[in-house]
Write a protein that binds this DNA or RNA. Structure first.
Lengths: 394, 394
DNA sequence: ACAATTACCGTGTACGTTCCCGTTAATGCG
DNA sequence: CGCATTAACGGGAACGTACACGGTAATTGT
């Protein structure tokens, strides 16, 4: 596919540049140039707009000589296609299914909001969003997915629970021409178009570095993880262990404790953990189920004495961070993840932009000092503004 | 101004919800409903599209009875205006001037990129971006601004150097109908529409909290600031001092040292600072001019022994973070700031959405462990993709 | 030589809105 | 009653593009 190198619309002027007289700033025009379109090109080339259209889009049936002439003129005139007209003509609507678990709501609700926000910001194309919800990661998701295979969606957004099981389903989607974008977790070695997630290994590394910086004495640290079947949790632990070895050699790691996302298990595990000798100096909880851990700490009277790093942000954590009982929490930015995932899918479907396969964003390190900046995100479950805006002007 | 409550296009279905039979998922339609427009409303109401248009937009010349009827029908049919068609008809182009200093390039270049990216993502409306550049914050910016007052811009993006001086200029712009959005720094108590910036006070607080957590012994910490005339730097110091008092009472603050953004001054100041007794345990550099500070530390052989927190991210800092000579740097996310500032201005100009006056984003805390995730942003000075995308399909 | 094929190009319509102008019917006033 | 005024509405052109279709000239076959 050929492209004309279109000169952008950006003009710039300088002031006080040695090699560029400041008089150049008078060169800016008062009124924007009459926007030039396919018609103006046709007039300049003395041909019809149909030919211009064919030439610009590399469609067959146009003489290579005239095509080049058109491309030249288009470039010299600074032609930029009117996207409103284009989108109006080929009246597209995108149909996108969104498959996400209900729990943990503090994470997936804002993720959904991010998707909605991005979809709403989409001017000029109507987007149909179909939200599908299932109880937990890896519980009933496959069945729900399979139901949508034949429905002719343009794309779907999903969080793969067990990457191995969804592979064939993803293939079915792509075979039907449906683009699949993973969000919040990856399903590598599948046909998925792209993945947007927080870099899990880095989350673990940050936790290790923070603990290493704060804890000066020699000792042990522990991790409490959710379910090791999900790719993310294993990645976090690997990052944690690796960073601990290189950046905090004075701390040794107690083997990971798996809580299987059950509060009871997490609570019991923490209690037995605190009875160990020597008692761990720090704990890294890499799942959102951190409240039972804190409860166990509290009941043991060790709340201030064991440094704690948690994951995600939800209302119950706020007072604990404010009081210093939690050193830091690693915020996985669900809203941003959703927004980015949608934008990736959207640009692929509409502009054909092949996205980079994985987008890894940096988690936010939330401390006591920057906590206030994140509090507004907690209450925006319904922040979506549905006034569709009839009035265009004023 | 009246609005019809438009039902959104989002559908949702559940699985395994107790009070919602899973059979509801079969209710989704295979093909998207024929998108309904002003014409369909007219047909349903047995009137012409002209009247429908008038009714929907509260234009005069329509009987209140029929207007209400139209609004009812529009709502029941789930009418959503086709923005592409709208934007095509009222052929808008936005003209926006962007006034930013050239230095510090590591900050303002990505900020410009963010603006460009957001402007490019704007489908369906052509945006003219005029970049104006002046050497430094507060040097010649006013003159350049005044030149643009009468040019009829729809909006301008700027970084106020000295907030007091730009007040009258901003007023002139708004008097001419030009919306002003500040980015990276604020000009409070002026007519500016909105401000997008990193919360400076929080930056300072984070620095203090980190130092307080890492330094256990009693001692002193120092700050090296740029120019206290710019609002941001003062805010950072206030945040630093406040957080130090509440969260790290074992550390006492040495009065701020002003470097006036000159490397030489920063270098000298650091040298004399290091000769003090007791020697400071930590230093917070709240401006991007941190290299001279590091040089002074290096020459004094104290590089690992004094905890250092810097600001922003540029290539020279990378090895210093990797080697642990810098504890952390507070990244002000220029790209995101630019993108957000543009989006704010855009949504106001186009949709009339009154933005919230200040948007404060959280700075990223860059440590050694999460540094790799930020490295790609360093090389994207020319990441702007200028292929304007002729080919709509495929 | 003429017909058939092909390569190239012009024309027209539609997309959904906005907005101007024209039309109708009702009202006001002398 | 006749005419002007006005409220309420219909009709239609345009915005810039994509694309189907029809047309013309050039090329080929016999």
């Amino acid at each position: 596919m050929r492209h004309v190198a279109i000169v952008g619309r950006w003009r710039s002027s300088s002031y006080g540049e040695a090699d560029q007289p400041s008089s150049t700033i008078t060169a800016v025009r008062e009124k924007p140039a009459k926007s030039i379109g396919i018609k103006q090109i046709a007039a300049a080339a003395r041909i019809s707009i149909g030919t211009v259209d064919r030439a610009l889009h590399n469609r067959p049936g146009v003489n290579p000589t005239t095509r080049n002439r058109v491309l030249k003129i288009a470039e010299s005139l600074g032609y930029k296609p009117n996207l409103a007209a284009r989108n109006l003509k080929l009246n597209r609507h995108l149909r996108i299914a969104v498959h996400l678990p209900r729990h943990i709501a503090s994470f997936f609700d804002p993720l959904r909001s991010g998707i909605r926000e991005a979809a709403q910001a989409t001017h000029s194309v109507t987007v149909d969003l179909d939200f599908r919800t299932y109880p937990h990661l890896g519980e009933g998701d496959l069945k729900l997915l399979e139901d949508d295979v034949g429905r002719g969606y343009d794309g779907i957004l999903m969080t793969p629970g067990n990457p191995l099981l969804v592979e064939s389903t993803i293939r079915k989607f792509t075979d039907h021409g449906t683009a699949v974008v993973c969000v919040a977790s990856d399903a590598p070695r599948t046909n998925r178009l792209a993945t947007v997630s927080v870099d899990a290994a880095t989350s673990g590394s940050i936790a290790a570095e923070l603990l290493g910086r704060v804890l000066h004495e020699e000792g042990t640290v522990a991790t409490i993880t959710g379910d090791l079947k999900t790719l993310d949790h294993g990645e976090k632990l690997r990052g944690f262990a690796a960073a601990l070895a290189t950046m905090a050699p004075h701390l040794t790691l107690i083997p990971a404790i798996e809580s299987h996302e059950r509060p009871k298990e997490a609570y019991q595990a923490t209690l037995t953990l605190l009875k160990r000798k020597p008692r761990p100096l720090g704990i890294y909880v890499n799942t959102a189920i951190s409240i039972p851990v804190l409860q166990a700490l509290e009941e043991s009277g060790l709340c201030g004495r064991v440094q704690l790093i948690t994951t995600d942000l939800f209302p119950e954590l706020v007072p604990l961070i404010e009081s210093g009982k939690i050193l830091a929490t690693l915020y996985q930015r669900p809203f941003t993840q959703g927004k980015l995932a949608f934008e990736t899918l959207y640009r692929y479907l509409l502009d054909g932009v092949q996205p980079q396969p994985v987008t890894r964003l940096a988690p936010h390190i939330i401390l006591r000092s920057n906590l206030p900046l994140f509090l507004d995100r907690l209450s925006d479950a319904v922040e979506f503004n549905d006034r569709s805006g009839f009035a265009p002007n004023k």
